[in-house]
Design a protein around this nucleic acid. Structure first.
Lengths: 357, 357
DNA sequence: CTGAAAGCGCTTACAG
DNA sequence: CTGAAAGCGCTTACAG
């Protein structure tokens, strides 16, 4: 007797209740598998719901309950491999826990990030996962930062171990291959367009880590050896920076790339100038470029743990949403591991390391 | 006089109305910039809202209006470069139009896709953008397919020009470089785990296009020259397929990769077997791998238009949401352009083409 | 032009 | 264990 008044209208709980011959309240409880309901009624209501192919309206539920089971995910650029992979992992965890994910792309602009947060607040998301471009502002829900550090030390974050990562790269160049003129081409220390040089960016950390590591190695660091790009760490910017490095009276013999995309630009510049890698200039990259082992030459880099980063951020947020106390150590660091290939000077003549087999 | 009863509670329209000294209805109209309101009241209400930093609850609005201004985006794998780029572009367009985007990852499994659609329906999304894994089912909202073809010819879709793309690759190998033993390693013709071999997949189209192109070129196509992977077009699968091709009595002299990821696996297999590219075996790829020009050797492939694909799909959906008639040609094709590099045999000795400068 | 009232579709104290 | 009723925060006919 699935009698629907208007067949185009989606069935509501009222329809289900009528179909099952119970009250609205009972229908709601039965579908929610409340213990306050007989097994018999429970089944009757479930059957009725199935007959009408009823799908409860989550909007109404959220409005009533005051929780949306939605999480906002704010990223500078979803098309960047790092964010895409982190997003994928985070979403897996969140989806598993019954949350759905609203993704917003800020294009690395603080203004757009603020707009995005406004929208997310209007949608009453229960929590936030943020890779900030410098426009973060509190919207009154639990938040976990990823990639970058939290603006406020009380907040939680998951980030790469930037310091150790950069140290691994620099030490390898200096200690193993004996380089003494090492330059850096990295993302800016500031977080996004229209933001001051905030101290909580991965860019900032990597830059400082580079300075420190070079110092520890006892090398001289001419100011010209430190080059950063605009907010968009583009290949063209990296290429231009590298061109400038090569034009120096004392060009570097090795370059550390602060982000994978920059590596491509650096390689193109070197190629255009006819410099051999690693013969004339060695190149190492913070994040491993896609197909690093198939590049010419294979690129020495830090292994990617994007997924782990996203997963752990999501787990942290889930904890906060559950009402758990935030962990003592607010910033979770994801370990950095060096993967030596040919671009730093390692490997056989063909530039292949055994591990790539 | 921003008197809030409970400061932790978010302000509602009732608060704004009280603050502005008007009725709830008037407050609503004023904020909606209705013409039924004096300029003076309008301003008064807007000021009050600003003072309370009121953000209307979209849940309530959506419930009342019956439209959520949300669009669901269903993809097999957001971490794949193609989907990430398409998503980014689609989201830009949608966001611009005031829609927000719910992203779900189906992991290429039909079951997960069905679940995702259920959730999306429960959230009452206004429309759908779907790169199906074979689990699509109607949830009663406008939908635009992308990457794959629509299951139903009346529905809209945006897809690559698979036929022409594959033809370009095969013809180039045959006509320009004189290959007569061309093999194909591609994604499966079926759409996802647990789905029959539906005829609307890009994989299906590319495979058929390959057969047709080889036929047109007047070449023989031994069945063993056609290899497809499981639903997940993984590098390892491609490597295994290539290993098998190389073990044939008459191995191919050229391989067409149906998806960028497979290209990596093919190259690794060739490398492991000590075959030179393009000397021993030429390789061309349907979608251009990331950093194609920096790979060893630089890879001949079709230029990427992922963004255009995503953008056009979003625009199409926006049209449907506006109530426009769907375009006469339901399937929009994105053009394919060949970019010849060294892996097919083009370019100078260093394997570089002039265009890569 | 403004206001009182109904209603979107749920959930959940409050009675029984 | 079940039901009648209030209410989440908006929008929008319906009167004036």
């Amino acid at each position: 007797m699935a009698v629907r008044r208007d067949p185009t209208r989606r069935p509501t709980l009222v329809d289900v209740a009528a179909e099952a011959g119970v009250s609205l309240a009972t229908a709601s409880r039965a579908l929610g598998d409340s213990t306050l309901v007989t097994e018999q009624t429970r089944r009757r209501v479930h059957d009725a719901a199935a007959r009408l192919s009823f799908e409860p309206n989550r909007l109404a539920r959220s409005l009533r309950r005051g929780a949306t089971m939605a999480v906002g995910l704010v990223v500078p650029d979803i098309a960047a491999a790092f964010y895409a992979a982190a997003l994928r992992a985070a979403q897996g965890v969140l989806q598993e826990a019954g949350y759905h994910v609203l993704v917003v792309n800020t294009e690395r602009a603080a203004v757009r990030e603020r707009e995005a947060l406004g929208t997310l607040r209007a949608h009453r998301v229960d929590g936030l996962l943020v890779a900030t471009s410098g426009g973060y502002e509190d919207i009154g829900v639990p938040v976990v930062f990823f990639d970058n550090l939290p603006p406020d030390p009380g907040q939680c974050a998951v980030a790469m171990d930037n310091e150790r990562g950069v140290a691994l790269l620099v030490e390898h160049l200096a200690a193993v291959h004996g380089h003494r003129r090492i330059a850096y081409v990295g993302p800016p220390a500031a977080l996004g367009e229209g933001t001051p040089g905030l101290a909580h960016g991965a860019g900032h950390e990597r830059l400082e880590a580079f300075r420190a590591a070079v110092g520890r190695a006892g090398l001289v660091l001419p100011p010209e050896y430190v080059a950063t790009t605009g907010v968009e760490p583009s290949e063209t910017a990296a290429r231009a920076r590298t061109d400038a490095l090569l034009a120096l009276a004392q060009p570097p013999t090795a370059i550390v790339a602060g982000v994978d995309r920059l590596t491509a630009g650096i390689l193109r510049s070197l190629r255009a100038h006819g410099r051999r890698v690693p013969g004339d200039v060695a190149v190492v990259s913070f994040d491993e470029p896609v197909y690093a082992d198939l590049l010419d030459p294979p690129i020495t880099a830090l292994e990617r743990h994007d997924g782990e980063l996203g997963r752990r951020a999501a787990e942290l947020l889930l904890g906060l949403l559950r009402g758990d106390e935030p962990p003592e150590a607010r910033v979770v660091r994801v370990r950095a591991d060096l993967r030596a290939r040919a671009s730093c000077g390692c490997g056989d003549a063909a530039g292949r390391t055994p591990a790539d087999s």
